[in-house]
Design a binder for these strands. Structure first.
Length: 426
RNA sequence: GGAGGGGUGGCAGAGCGGUUGAAUGCACUGGUCUUGAAAACCAGCGUGCCCUCGCGGGUACCGUGGGUUCGAUUCCCACCCCCUCCGCCA
């Protein structure tokens, strides 16, 4: 969420930002400002009444102490009306506060000035294309056929046991998955300097709210209502919430975490060839990067974090491209976001495998993650960033397709071999 | 799951119905002293919100939410979390 006081002082910038993000209706801003006026008026009235009440109580205390019991009793008799007033005003102030908070949660983050305007995927800027798309002297197969032929993934039994989108990885398929996770984590921790985290896979409501999955996107998450918990849609949720409600020492920044987790997403919606095979699952593996940085560093960090994610694709030798997301395709909480898409040789299309975002203080304000700048009493909100490095299923798809051979086997890229324990699958 | 103990400021730790935002110690900041440093001494030192151009003032906050009371950190109820013991369990 944005800073209420800032919104109060810059309503036009907020309206402008919403328009850039393609939100026609900016009257939330007006409703918010109005609600804020109401809230402050109610609060003043309440506090004034409380001040009077405190004065009376103090007097009564003094009278009691000096033994003037009857005078005290007279004063006590006078208080009932004031008590009633306070009770009512408390109610009103609370309601006003709740209205303001609810409206504030409806206001999206402000896009950074370097973010291109646009209304959807077509307006994203392709900032660069890297690596060579392989030329095949045979017809490359899509990954679902490769995995079928080699017995890597069992989609049908996954459907039987759980449902569509919950495949079994079997034998070499399972081993490949494990190898990639280990390799990605090593890259992030040993080379990238990220501290490795194994987070819980269930989070409570406060955490889901903290990273912005609630209140709006509850359809995204699987829920365990009996215990009021949610299955994580990404490690971003537990790992960012790790520092919720904390005040960090300035010297500890930047804080860099990497985490592997299974991710659970309901993804209600489209079916068809674009979700075939590994393209879209309800449960998948991902290694996520999260950073907490000083505000002045966050845009530089966005670039280095993007480099960290790209390095994984480079190490795997997979062709990919980098997209700078436009205002309309960016999402509610982000100020700036890159996507990385890997080339799928068997499907001949780009697959999103990573998304790297700067949230500025939008998340940290909600989560109250602050730090104390050197030589300063007042705390400030840190900036948070996160990025995938990488999401596994589509990476696996591209990997199998890119490195498939005419005889049906897959020749793994050199850096992956020690993790997999062999050069070839099949 | 059962029994007991506990949750107070950055940390440690008092308070247990009245002017307590909260003793004390440590940490931190400024000053005195010193050639310099340490020690010592003096002073300051929580957060949110509201009002104010500013000085400043007000209000709320002692795990969370309710209740009793003129007044609650202090009493009552519910919930959450932590610790110890028992049970169960990978």
């Amino acid at each position: 969420m944005l800073d209420l006081q800032w919104v109060r002082e810059h309503p036009d910038q907020v309206r402008n930002a919403m328009a850039r993000k393609g939100l026609e209706n900016t009257d939330v801003v007006d409703r918010l400002l109005e609600a804020d006026r109401t809230r402050r008026a109610e609060l003043s009235e309440l506090q004034e009444a409380q001040a009077r009440s405190n004065d009376v109580s103090r007097e009564i205390g003094e009278l009691m102490k000096s033994g003037r019991k009857e005078e005290a009793n007279d004063r006590i008799a006078e208080t009932s009306l004031l008590k009633k007033e306070i009770r009512e005003r408390e109610e009103a102030a609370r309601a006003a506060e709740a209205t303001v908070n609810a409206l504030l949660l409806e206001v999206p983050n402000i896009p950074h000035e370097t973010v291109p305007d646009g209304s959807g995927a077509k307006d994203n800027e392709v900032v660069g294309e890297f690596g060579e798309r392989r030329k095949f002297d045979f017809e490359p197969l899509p990954h679902w056929e490769i995995s079928e032929n080699l017995g890597l993934i069992d989609f049908d039994r996954g459907s039987k046991v759980t449902g569509a989108g919950f495949p079994f990885f079997v034998g070499p398929g399972a081993k490949l998955e494990r190898a990639l996770i280990a390799m990605f984590l090593d890259l992030a921790s040993d080379e990238g300097g990220y501290t490795e985290i194994q987070p819980p896979l269930l989070v409570n409501e406060d955490s889901a709210r903290g990273t912005g999955q609630l209140p709006d996107k509850e359809d995204l998450m699987y829920e365990v209502p009996r215990d009021e918990l949610y299955l994580v849609p990404t490690a971003e949720v537990p790992v960012t919430n790790l520092l919720r409600d904390e005040i960090l020492e300035s010297e500890t920044l930047p804080i860099k975490y990497c985490a592997y987790s299974a991710c659970f997403r309901r993804e209600a919606g489209s079916y068809g060839k674009h979700v075939r095979g590994l393209n879209r699952l309800h449960q998948f593996d991902k290694v996520e990067l999260v950073q907490f940085v000083k505000p002045e560093d966050s845009y530089e960090t966005l670039e280095t974090m993007r480099d960290d994610a790209e390095r994984v694709l480079q190490r795997l030798g997979l062709p990919y491209r980098r997209l700078l997301m436009c205002t309309g395709d960016m999402g509610f909480s982000q100020a700036k976001k890159y996507d990385l898409e890997v080339w799928s040789a068997g499907q001949e299309r780009w697959l999103e495998v990573s998304s790297i975002s700067n949230f500025e203080a939008f998340q940290s304000r909600r989560m109250r993650i602050r730090y104390r700048p050197q030589g300063q009493q007042k705390t400030e909100f840190v900036h948070t960033l996160n990025g995938s490095a990488l999401a596994l299923p589509r990476t696996v798809a591209a990997l199998l397709e890119h490195y498939q051979q005419a005889n049906g086997t897959v020749l793994l890229p050199e850096p992956l071999r020690p993790y997999y324990g062999a050069d070839t699958i099949g």
